[in-house]
Structures are given as C-alpha cells and as structure tokens.
Design a protein around this nucleic acid. Structure first.
Lengths: 108, 108
DNA sequence: CTGACCCATCAACGTTTCTTGATTAAGGAT
DNA sequence: ATCCTTAATCAAGAAACGTTGATGGGTCAG
C-alpha cells in the first residue's frame, strides 16, 4: 500500500494543490517522473536560475510531493512514492466534518 | 465517458490546481458535492461574506470546476460533472513534450 | 590552503491573490 | 413606483507568492 492522502485534511490538501498550481513545479514533477535528478540537471534542463528552482523544490518538498537526498555536494530530488495517488479521491473525500473544523462556522 | 482533463495542458492544469488550492474553495466543492446550492445557502453555511464567496465561486467557475444557473434573483451553483475525474492521471500525463512548449528551454 | 563547484538561504522588489466594504443591477413584493 | 432581496462587480488595502541577485556553507580537487 502506498502513501496516499489518507486524512482529507483541508489545510494539507490545499497545500498539495497549491504546490501543483505552478507550471514550473509541474514541469519539475514531470522530469522527476523519470527518476531521481540532481538540481544541476534540473536547472540545466529548464534553463532556470538555481535559486528559483531551489524555491520551487522547497515548495514541492513542503507539500510532501518530493524528497531530497544529499550526496557529496549534489542534492538529488525524487518523487515521493504514491504521493500523487488518489488526488481526486481526496477531493471526493472532503467531508462536511473536515470542512467544519477548518472554516469558521458550520459548513454543509 | 466523462469529461476529464484530456489535454495535459500545463497552463490549464495549473489553473485547476490553483482553484483547488484554497480551503474556502475546497469547502465550497465539498458542499456542492451534495448537489446544487444557491449562493445564499453557501454564504449562510460558511458564514462568509457574500462578496468573498462570489470571488471564490468565480475562480472555481473560471477553472471549469463549477457551473452556475440563474433562477429569478437566485444563482445556483453546481459541480461540473466529471471535472474532478482523472486529476492524478493528468499529473501522470504531463509529458516532456507539453513541458517543453510552456517552459523556456528544453525540459526533460 | 586555495579555489571551484553545488546548493540553500536571504533581502528586495514586483506581481498576484484574497479580503472588505461600497456600489450596481436585476427580480420580486407591496 | 418604491422598497427589499440576491448576487456580481469595483476599488482599496493587506498578505502571500515568485523572481532575481547576493551571500554563505559544505564538498571536492589541486
């Protein structure tokens, strides 16, 4: 069994979607689908500033979508296995209950 | 067969994810899962300003996730059927090709 | 040790997004 | 016609976001 977004926590789900709401980050995800890559490869491929990619990779990592590994002076990023599974299921699973807790008043 | 996000258009996909990246909007989606609702019901349930919800509903509509229907002085919103299907598939389908076109240089 | 390299972080700036309150428009009731 | 209701839109401000260039820390080669 893979990771999934088990708890339909509204805050967490929103953060995941936010991480996926940027074209640069979507492109990073696409590249990482082929497997682990070091940052320098990513910057070369996207022709983007190193500082810029570092920012986006940090965002993806904070959302739990990618993970990094240090080796010498290189940093290798890869997708978190299963992190993308059940995204639409997660949306379908937002319950009135989970909504209540996050948003001000009673909801649904 | 439902609608789906057939073309893994990076820009469009990013906009859909952006629409889902806000807790208020996720809550709206959750409420609309039960069926059509008028705006006044939504504002009452979320205890949110009318202008605020109007903004978020507009965002969701622009992303193609909800649709509206006027009836008298009421506006009824509902989910666009199938708009949420295959979200993770869409992510999995971002191809190097589609990435190339959107981002500056060669990618992947 | 020195210098080159890889990468994260920071500060500054411009842009976008979200919120709030006021205005506008249109429907229905009296 | 006048008034109330529903909801979209606007304007203004606050907050979050993304970009850029500079700085700093850690790693390896010479």
């Amino acid at each position: 069994m893979t990771t999934h977004i088990a708890t339909p926590d509204l805050t967490r789900l929103a953060r995941v979607f936010h991480a996926l709401s940027d074209e640069t980050r979507l492109c990073l995800v696409a590249m990482l689908r082929d497997g682990e890559r070091c940052v320098c490869d990513l910057t070369a491929a996207l022709d983007a500033g190193q500082s810029r990619l570092s920012f986006h990779l940090k965002t993806l990592k904070a959302a739990g979508l990618v993970q990094d590994r240090r080796e010498g002076r290189w940093a290798y990023y890869s997708l978190v296995p299963g992190a993308f599974d059940g995204l639409d299921d997660a949306v379908a699973a937002i319950s009135p209950g989970s909504a209540i807790r996050t948003v001000k008043a009673r909801c649904c």
